[in-house]
Design a binder for these strands. Structure first.
Lengths: 344, 344
DNA sequence: GCCGGCAATGTTAGCGATAACATACGAGCG
DNA sequence: CGCTCGTATGTTATCGCTAACATTGCCGGC
């Protein structure tokens, strides 16, 4: 209600308005609003009152430009509908909570070009850190990360070289160990079911590790099936049916994620297949969902939340290691045998 | 490690660097990089080459301050782990794709105070629009939205007054119609299972509408059960068991979301309960997951993606209605009877 | 050959905040 | 009483970019 109305138009409110309303300089208002520097209690009150009354919202754009500081952390992930990434996000948010830093999300849909574009866009806001999923980037994206001049944490995966820091698990090893466990349990004729995504390097590495594990025992994958799009649970069913029709002698199915694994499990149970006797099953990720299934699917936890936390800690400069960058954190996924692998 | 030259430290790269490298003025570089104004083809090439070579990334902070334009849209939602919101996000992203606008997400965890804080933070970046879930806000948040001076779209819900525009479905009506369908199918002794979240106004409205629908037929809810946290699928099972133990005469269970409904369905099937003969079941949302279940759970689609699209269209100023604000879009959820309600 | 007119480029003045430095003022001290 | 010192506040100069307004050349028409 001050000058000619609440505010002639948007954002019309600036430090100057508050300063005039409270009778002190802009600088003092700025100090009060940021809790920085010495300001007398009386002045502080006066200023806060004026700001509140006017409904002033600081302009961080100007603030950031002047101070060369931005309290944003760019987070770049392939997808939000994957279940996995929202959990990573939670970990990040949790850890960033009281650092004054704020995550900003960008989604790439597993497209390297899109990743490059999203990264460019993010960097143009000069965030004080970047967390990005995966170790594989276009050359241009890699160069940008290299020159970002802020902490960069590549997450989810540690199988390969990273630009600055990385936090994740070895998907190769995850596949390998699952294969060993399966072989140890006596299964021999094994099928693989996964996503048709050349760009999902982690799924690929898991499969490679898995095959390597089988190879140790002189085994090979007997069959494979890939899908894309649609309800993962449904696809899991369909693929399982397809595969078992085609290769009825299989005695184990390894799924590249828990959702399709769950679909497969439901199908097997409905079709009277003895699990884990006649047929063993395993997925990957360790999602919540599994707890509600009729039987607990074997899986391997992918440490999603922990990955988020550790990555955020590095960006926030509070890593427990005390390092400032160039950190490499490999978490160890634990095998959860559930009820779908024979006990040894 | 590389050149102690090009940029001594982070972001040292500015328009000036590019301008010097290419021998034209900063303004011309700016024009080239934004594709604005007349620039000769030769100059354009020269500038782009220099920019690429240096690895220049424009500083949008400065750009936004100077131009008073920010290509960001703030999106404020309660949660990312809910399945529902990522889908809304997809709709938003899709629609925003070629508008030059970029969504920035803030998560409130269903806390009004957190919502207020997130909103304040967002507005301080002066986005060119805000999309926010729900119609209920703290007075301060409402005031901020009111004075934002940019398009504000409240989404998901239309049962109540909105600040500027809103896009959603009527949860009251959704509950009401589900109740009518259930009554019509001959069920009479009905239980409700939902989340223990006073702040989830939409779930609350659904329940209210549901009760109103029952009341039309002179019925009342015979039992209710609420949960919070944990695996929704598992909770669905547990609650179903609890409720049917306590109230064995119930003949219908209405779940406030599909996940717990799915858990309930699995439990019923495992326990040999005749669905939908002896017992009818229904959920809410229409999620993908349902397709993979042994039987299709009755549900009501909540138009999530469409809500995202329409909201984004309004913010982007491309609403099909041609209106500039103050729009009210009520979408109509469709009942999907699935296999868990008796045919009439 | 002079000048209007247009296309291509340059200059100037902020955008709204903050860093860094300056100033005012009262207290405490010898 | 003069001086130092520390606290509370004000001034000035950017931050990197863009809007708006010059300016420069070159063209053709009369």
């Amino acid at each position: 209600m001050s000058r000619s109305g609440p505010e002639a138009r948007r954002g019309a409110l600036t430090l100057r308005d508050v300063s005039e309303a409270s009778g002190v300089s802009e600088m003092t208002v700025s100090r009060v609003l940021r809790n920085r520097g010495d300001v007398s209690e009386a002045t502080r009150e006066k200023v806060l009152e004026a700001a509140r009354h006017l409904g002033y919202v600081p302009n961080k754009i100007a603030g950031a430009l002047a101070s060369q500081r931005v309290n944003l952390v760019g987070v770049i992930i392939p997808s939000l509908s994957n279940l996995v990434f929202p959990e990573v996000m939670s970990g990040i948010s949790e850890e960033l909570e009281d650092t004054g830093l704020q995550p900003v999300v960008g989604v790439t849909n597993y497209s390297p070009e899109r990743e490059e574009a999203v990264l460019y866009e993010m960097l143009s806001w000069r965030p004080s850190g970047v967390i990005i999923a995966g170790l594989e980037h276009t050359p241009a994206a890699a160069a940008m990360l290299e020159n970002a001049g802020v902490p960069v944490v590549e997450i989810m995966d540690v199988d390969g070289p990273c630009v600055d820091s990385c936090v994740g698990i070895s998907h190769k090893r995850a596949g390998l160990e699952m294969a060993r466990a399966i072989v140890r349990a006596g299964y021999r004729r094994i099928g693989f079911l996964g996503t048709k995504m050349p760009e999902d390097h982690r799924a690929r590495k898991r499969m490679e590790g898995f095959e390597a594990g089988l190879a140790e025992a002189g085994l090979e994958l007997e069959d494979r099936e890939f899908y894309s799009g649609g309800s993962a649970l449904k696809k899991g069913r369909e693929m399982t049916e397809t595969m078992l029709t085609r290769s009825p002698k299989l005695d184990f199915l390894y799924y590249s994620n828990d959702m399709i694994g769950a679909g497969g499990l439901l199908w097997c149970l409905e079709n009277g297949i003895d699990v884990p006797g006649r047929m063993g099953l395993a997925g990957f990720n360790g999602v919540d969902l599994l707890e509600g299934l009729p039987r607990r699917l074997a899986t391997m936890d992918s440490c999603r939340r922990e990955i988020g936390r550790r990555a955020a800690a590095i960006v926030a400069g509070r890593s427990p290691t005390g390092l400032v960058g160039g950190e490499r954190v490999e978490l160890t996924p634990t095998l959860e045998p559930g009820d779908t692998i024979r006990a040894v």
